[in-house]
């Protein structure tokens, strides 16, 4: 408990609010790094996920590749890429983007798949084109699960982005490594607490977004579907699994 008190003291110490190591600066860097990684990973994963979700093609491949991606140790990938392209932000971006892709990809295609096929068939029957079906039906209905995938990716990236400080002068990981190497446990724990707070803030933001993006008509009907025909309650099953990896 004493250690926690020291860590809190470290966080509150005015000395840690000036200079290049100022806490607000490191928090900002950490957040910016996390968001840019999420944007890159989303730009790669969402189109692929939508394609799989809409056509059902390449699903088996995507599941295996995403599974293998999950198993790739971030530390190993980081060191390997660093040896290729040198120090700086490049290697951490590559390693963390790969970390973020599987949950976003899964969120994108399970979002489409969770939609009752009759809804899509109905859209097709009233003469909507495939493009209109994707934009007008599948994307809005699949959005909550997609946001869920991004949310779970965000949580992993924000916690793992500390490893970026292994080879770059960025983020809250700087406190962790300096604390580790100089046996300053208060600094290390203080840095960790900041990471956790940041993760919690992101969680809150994403939970709010998730709430707002559920289309109005879906809210009531979904809970009914879960009740009455729980064997088809796929959205819930998947979101549970998607909470997935660290």
């Amino acid at each position: 408990m004493n250690l926690f008190a020291q860590a809190v003291q470290w966080i509150l110490d005015p000395l840690n609010y000036v200079g290049v190591n100022a806490i607000p600066l490191r928090v900002f860097e950490h957040l910016a790094f996390t968001l840019v990684t999420l944007v890159i990973a989303s730009a790669i994963a969402i189109p692929i996920g939508f394609f799989i979700g809409h056509t059902g093609r390449g699903r088996g491949l995507a599941v295996s590749v995403a599974g293998a991606f999950r198993a790739i140790p971030t530390l190993g990938l980081l060191t390997l890429v660093a040896l290729w392209i040198g120090i700086g932000l490049g290697a951490p971006f590559v390693a963390l983007t790969i970390l973020a892709i599987p949950p976003i990809l899964a969120g994108a295609y399970t979002g489409f798949e969770a939609i009752d096929r009759r809804t899509v068939d109905a859209a097709r029957a009233v003469g909507m084109s495939e493009g209109q079906i994707v934009r007008g039906v599948e994307v809005p209905l699949g959005l909550p699960l997609l946001i869920g995938g991004i949310r779970s990716a965000a949580l992993q990236v924000v916690a793992t982005a500390t490893l970026a400080a292994y080879i770059a002068d960025i983020g809250l990981g700087r406190y962790l490594f300096t604390g580790l190497k100089t046996r300053d446990h208060a600094e290390m724990l203080g840095g960790s607490i900041l990471v956790i707070l940041l993760a919690l803030a992101l969680e809150g933001i994403f939970a709010t977004i998730q709430r707002f993006v559920v289309p109005r008509g879906v809210i009531s009907s979904r809970s009914k579907v879960v009740r009455v025909r729980s064997s088809r309650a796929r959205p819930m099953v998947n979101s549970a699994v998607e909470k997935g990896t660290q």
Binding site: L3, A159, T162, G179, L180, H185, L189, S192, E203, Q246
Partner: peptide, 19 residues
């Protein structure tokens, strides 16, 4: 338990023996 998830692994490995 969701909170546990946000703890970065490296410091947890080091602080744990202290706790």
């Amino acid at each position: 338990v969701g909170l546990l998830y946000a703890i970065p692994s490296l410091p947890l490995f080091i602080v744990l023996p202290v706790i």
